[in-house]
Amino acid sequence: MTRPLVLCAPEPRALDQIFTPQALSTLRDRYRLHETDAASVAALPSETLAEARYILGQPPLDESALAAMTSLRAILNVESNLLQNMPYAPLFERGIHVLTTGQVFAQPVAEIGLGFALALARQIVDADLDFREGREAWGLDGARRSRLLTGSDIGLVGYGDLGRALHRLLVPFRARLRVFDPWLPDAVIAEAGAEPADLDTVLAASDFIFVVASVTSENQGFLGADAFARMRAGAAFILLSRAGVVDFDALMAAVASGHIVAASDVYPEEPLPPGHPVRALPGFLRSAHRAGALTSALTRMGDMVLDDMALMDRGLPPARLKRAERETVARMRSKPVEKT
């Protein structure tokens, strides 16, 4: 029996990043792999397109290429973005699954987000740098600006996979957790043990604000100067999802003024140019889009891909990967980064 064909164009990743050696061996045993680059998929011979059961990656496709893919069952997107580079309506009409693996990043990003919050609350990085330079302040003198995460007011902007993973980590801190997510009914948030709130309340009533919302056509730059001005003096703003949801210049200005402190793993331009002002901004904790970049997270992708392909081979729906939704996929505006 001929093994099913998989078109492999997993940019920006490589197969040996996504799959452990054992999992990659399993993939090669179960399927025939046609490895190519994303830009070349739509131009493959028509007989190759017609035979493909799965696409591993997120290559640009036009309607004619998709029409030629008469055996296609799923596109398995191995990054956390949904690009506007294929005709989603015909995919949904034909019952072809568009699946994403971005949820593998939720736990590692949530953990580093918690680390950012603790570092800002206790000035851990600044204290270490002071110690190295011999200008440390001891005891209470070195902790006058410190505070506890325990018992604080915490706000989440967004409550998807990342927001929920972060919520689980925050439970032991006995904080009051308010959540703003316009794509969810209040009941979903309340049943998870958080308090639904509007954006103004989350901004004004929080000591720590975690931004974990995806960039959409409706929220680009929606956190600007007015939003930062509404935050409590000294509050910590922690940006974990995508820089496109904030006015980054306004964020830097709010930090530079001393009104808030901030941490970010993401930036409007990546990599940042050497002279970008955020590099030298006091009160700003910086991370180079590395929060989810763990080998253990990437190889979870391969396990999930294999599991769901095995289900679909049997005529069953995928169970581990997240499905793109017809109502929201066209609104997504997150951009891929060059280094992951």
Rank of each mutant, 00 (worst) to 15 (best):
Q17E: 14
Y267Q: 09
L166D: 08
G57V: 03
D141V: 10
I154A: 07
L27K: 02
M309C: 10
V98W: 04
D198N: 15
T26M: 06
R168L: 14
W183V: 15
V179C: 00
T150V: 14
R3M: 03
L170A: 08
P282N: 04
G160Q: 09
Q22M: 09
V157W: 02
V179H: 00
A9C: 11
A23I: 03
Q58K: 05
V337I: 15
G224F: 06
V245Y: 04
R290P: 00
L148M: 13
Q84L: 11
T100I: 12
H167L: 07
Q107G: 10
G139L: 04
V6P: 01
E327S: 15
I112F: 06
D207N: 12
E338W: 15
L239S: 04
E325N: 13
F180N: 07
H97S: 12
L251G: 05
A233Y: 13
S257R: 15
S334H: 08
T328C: 03
A117R: 04
R178S: 13
A253Y: 09
M69G: 03
Q123G: 08
A14R: 14
A117Y: 01
S40M: 13
A74D: 05
A137S: 10
G244N: 01
L140N: 00
H97F: 15
V171Y: 00
V157T: 08
G234P: 02
V215T: 08
V78L: 07
R326N: 05
L311K: 13
D226L: 06
A106Y: 01
L82M: 13
L15S: 09
I124N: 04
C8Y: 02
A225C: 07
R94K: 11
L5M: 07
V188M: 13
V211Y: 05
D200S: 10
G163F: 06
Y54W: 09
M252W: 04
L24V: 01
L285K: 03
R144W: 12
A110Q: 06
G221Q: 08
R323G: 14
F131S: 12
A38F: 03
T20F: 03
P271S: 10
E191Y: 03
S257H: 11
R331A: 14
E63W: 00
L311Q: 15
P274C: 01
S206D: 04
A330Y: 11
L83P: 04
D37C: 15
D247G: 09
A68C: 12
A39T: 08
G292K: 01
I154T: 13
R232E: 07
I55Y: 03
L15G: 05
R230F: 00
D29F: 08
S146D: 13
R286P: 07
R164K: 15
V278S: 11
S217F: 05
L170P: 05
I124G: 03
G244I: 07
